[in-house]
Simulated scan of single mutants.
Amino acid sequence: MQIRIIDQGSGILADILDRIHEPFFTTKEQGTGLGMPVSCQIVEEHKGKVNILSSMHGTCVEVNLPALT
């Protein structure tokens, strides 16, 4: 199963995208930097994968999970 979340914003800068999975990395003044790392860990514990693709035309977050049997 694949879930895609797509926006048409200005995208995520490459240097930020490279660090987005790092615990405690944030660009928000009041952020904890745990949202993406925890979300990715949950997906990976279910044998899935998160891919983030971004350009100046927007960002696509893909969540791939194995089919339930």
Rank of each mutant, 00 (worst) to 15 (best):
M1C: 06
Q2W: 04
Q2D: 12
I5M: 12
I6Q: 11
D7K: 12
D7C: 10
Q8R: 15
Q8M: 05
Q8N: 15
Q8P: 02
S10C: 12
S10H: 14
S10M: 11
G11L: 03
I12N: 07
I12V: 12
I12T: 05
I12K: 11
L13A: 15
L13S: 14
A14Y: 09
A14I: 06
A14K: 15
D15S: 10
I16R: 09
I16M: 02
I16N: 10
D18H: 13
R19L: 11
R19E: 12
R19Y: 07
I20T: 04
I20D: 03
I20A: 02
H21V: 00
E22W: 08
P23I: 01
F24Q: 13
F24H: 15
F25D: 02
F25T: 08
F25S: 03
F25G: 05
F25L: 02
F25M: 05
T27D: 00
E29D: 10
E29K: 15
Q30D: 14
Q30K: 15
G31F: 03
T32A: 00
T32W: 00
T32I: 01
T32Y: 02
T32F: 01
G33S: 04
G33E: 01
G33L: 01
L34H: 10
L34T: 14
L34V: 15
G35Q: 05
G35D: 09
G35A: 14
M36S: 03
M36G: 01
M36F: 14
M36R: 01
P37M: 06
P37H: 06
V38Y: 08
C40L: 00
C40V: 13
C40G: 07
I42Y: 06
V43R: 01
V43N: 01
V43Y: 00
E44S: 10
E45G: 03
H46W: 12
H46S: 06
H46G: 00
H46R: 13
K47S: 15
K47P: 05
K47T: 14
G48I: 11
G48E: 11
K49N: 14
V50S: 02
V50M: 04
V50R: 01
I52L: 04
I52V: 13
I52W: 09
I52H: 08
L53G: 05
L53R: 12
L53C: 07
S54N: 05
S54K: 11
S55I: 00
S55M: 00
H57V: 00
H57E: 12
H57P: 00
G58D: 03
G58E: 03
G58Y: 07
T59R: 12
V61Q: 03
V63I: 15
V63W: 04
V63F: 03
V63S: 02
N64W: 11
N64S: 13
N64H: 08
N64A: 12
N64K: 11
L65E: 06
L65T: 08
L65W: 05
L65S: 02
P66K: 05
P66T: 09
P66L: 06
A67Y: 09
A67W: 06
A67H: 09
L68P: 00
L68N: 07
T69R: 07
T69W: 04
T69Q: 09
